[in-house]
Simulated assay, not measured.
Amino acid sequence: MQYFVSYSRRDNSQDGLRRVRELLIAREATSVYVDDLELHDPAVDRVESVVKALHQADVFCALYSSSYLRSEWTRWEFDVAVASRTQMIALLPDGTFARPGSSEWPWLTVDEAQDHRRKLLLAQGPPTARVPDVWRAPEVVGRS
């Protein structure tokens, strides 16, 4: 199974992201996409790589944190997963997993989120026009 890990950079270190990747591989994942741990091809826009990985994922894993839904990118990733009906899980700060509909799920139900955000998602693509340069591979910074 291919996993896409969505997280707030503000709340997650490189070491923590590596531990999450190892945890998911031990769980059942055949591949785990963690943007900050990937070797990005300088010939390919980093945003395109994120979008492709998100659409190829079998499981969307959101790392719950206080900043998670404050990030434009994580909100967009979450919305895409909801709209595409990708299987979703949340990794909570205590190391447990929660599924939508469980009492531990930290957000609206998937159906509520889908109804609430579908119109916005369909009208917008990834927030590439507002992506800070630090989020892009150094080789593509400055390209339009």
Rank of each mutant, 00 (worst) to 15 (best):
G101C: 02
D41I: 06
S84M: 12
D35C: 03
R143H: 13
E48S: 14
E28L: 06
S31K: 14
A98Y: 01
I25L: 14
R46F: 06
S84F: 04
W76S: 06
S102C: 00
D133W: 13
V141P: 02
Y3V: 07
S6L: 05
Q14N: 11
A62I: 01
A129V: 03
L69Y: 11
Q56N: 11
V82L: 14
L122W: 12
G16N: 10
D94Q: 04
L91W: 01
F60G: 00
C61L: 15
Q114E: 09
V80Q: 11
E48G: 02
P100M: 06
R117G: 06
P100Y: 01
R85V: 04
A123G: 12
Y68G: 00
Q2N: 15
R117W: 11
R10Q: 15
F78Y: 15
R27G: 07
R85L: 09
S6T: 03
A29F: 08
R143S: 10
K119T: 14
T74C: 13
A29D: 05
S144A: 13
I89T: 10
L24T: 03
E22M: 07
T128N: 10
H55R: 15
Q2I: 09
E38W: 03
D41V: 10
D41S: 13
L54I: 05
V34K: 03
F97S: 03
T30A: 07
R99S: 14
T74I: 02
H116W: 11
D111F: 08
T30E: 15
D45Y: 09
A53S: 11
R136E: 01
F78V: 04
V131I: 01
R70Q: 11
R99G: 08
I89F: 01
D36G: 09
T86C: 13
A90H: 02
P126T: 00
D15F: 08
W76E: 01
P132E: 10
Y33P: 02
S8I: 03
A43W: 07
Y64Q: 12
D79S: 13
V44K: 15
V82N: 05
V47M: 12
Y7L: 04
P126M: 09
G101T: 05
A98E: 11
L120S: 14
Q114I: 04
S84K: 14
Q114K: 12
A29N: 00
L108E: 12
E139C: 05
D58H: 15
V80H: 07
L92N: 08
K52M: 02
L63F: 09
D15E: 14
A43N: 11
K119R: 15
R143G: 05
V32A: 01
L17I: 05
Q2R: 15
G101S: 10
P106E: 03
D115C: 08
L91N: 04
L121H: 14
E104Y: 07
R118A: 10
V82Q: 06
S65N: 00
D35L: 07
G95R: 01
M88P: 00
P93Y: 11
R70Y: 04
L91M: 05
V59S: 03
R130D: 14
T128Q: 11
R46C: 07
L69K: 12
S49V: 15
D45N: 12
D115I: 10
E38C: 05
A83D: 12
V50P: 08
A26I: 05
T109R: 08
V47I: 15
D45G: 08
